[in-house]
Design a binder for these strands. Sequence first.
DNA 1: TGATTTTTGGTATAATTTATTCGAAAAAAT
DNA 2: ATTTTTTCGAATAAATTATACCAAAAATCA
Lengths: 202, 202
Amino acid sequence: MVMSSDTGVNKKDANRENILKIAQEIFSKYGYKKTTLDDIANAVRKGKSSLYYYFSSKEDLFQAVILKEVEILKRELEKVILRNTDPVEKLRDYILTKLNTYRGLANFYHALENDVTAIEFIDNIKNKYNQEEIRMIKRILIEGVRKNAFDVKDFTLVAIGITTAIKGLEMPLSAGDYGTVNLETGVDNILKILCYGIMKRN
Amino acid sequence: MVMSSDTGVNKKDANRENILKIAQEIFSKYGYKKTTLDDIANAVRKGKSSLYYYFSSKEDLFQAVILKEVEILKRELEKVILRNTDPVEKLRDYILTKLNTYRGLANFYHALENDVTAIEFIDNIKNKYNQEEIRMIKRILIEGVRKNAFDVKDFTLVAIGITTAIKGLEMPLSAGDYGTVNLETGVDNILKILCYGIMKRN
DNA sequence: TGATTTTTGGTATAATTTATTCGAAAAAAT
DNA sequence: ATTTTTTCGAATAAATTATACCAAAAATCA
């Protein structure tokens, strides 16, 4: 393969990225099963068979989309963590950012149902990510204590607790009732509860 | 057919209604093509073949859903028309109500593409309804003039103009970019423009 | 109760859709 | 001009799906 000399990215990679971006939109709208390669091919204005030049199969494309999505989420959350905000605010931002990005992933998950391999794949990612999540929450907690806002003894334990609470918030998204749930309200509710347990009383 | 004596509605009709309601949700989420009878059957917790006891075909069911949707929209709009509000407010409410209900219809339309017969069917309804719309707008205008808020010479012409403007607002919905457009803002923009042309200056 | 009507859903099938392959040709780069 | 990259039409095999039929369950009635 020969690539253009000045730009580090070649055309193929650019095309891949474009396909990925559009595929993520369509997948997240219809879910895995209901999305056809024709849908994607039409949207990127290429022949269906051209997709196989970039990805070896529908599943391969799907996994690439998910992987990219996870990367984006990770970077987004890092940003929140590094922001210089009040600890509670930071916790709230973290959860909201996560849920909002998760909303995209949710629809993938939703229309998977039978497709065992795909579910397994996603579950693997989720588990892997779970560890990272706990670490991140921990950082927020530690910072909160240092700033004299939180009073936490066992960081790991509390971090796991909060992670669990977030999972609870994710549930309705996975289940697919979008319109019904108000994310912010849900988060604030959970936050209020969490804070009463965590906050240092004066 | 023998029906229960006291209630006017029999069970079959109730089931039909239920199927209609659920089918509308699924159709409006995935569009006509991507919705399978299995989807609907599962959602109503019946066997797929049972649906044929209530509707003669997928298309039949689809048309019933649309027809019902149109009925609901019509009734909703009648209510707005009869409300005792400021004319501009009423116009705004009318348009917003229409667009919001239309959001549901939009997705049907969106995933129709090839299916010529279905498109024709919907277009027929749209045309038929268009006349009614003009009549309704006219009523709002007439009332507005009587209340000394509007200054309109040719009601029909202005009504057609407004109807056209509303179509413009519907477009992005038909095109399928939901998240992008803010209905209220769009409506208020159009309204502001419309009012400057219609309002009686003091 | 037993008879009849309503409602359900399993199974079968024919038509359609869809993911994937292959190879050749257009486009771009060298 | 030759090589490399990229595209896509056509073919296919597997899966999905709308629809038809029929028998049995459930509800209603007499």
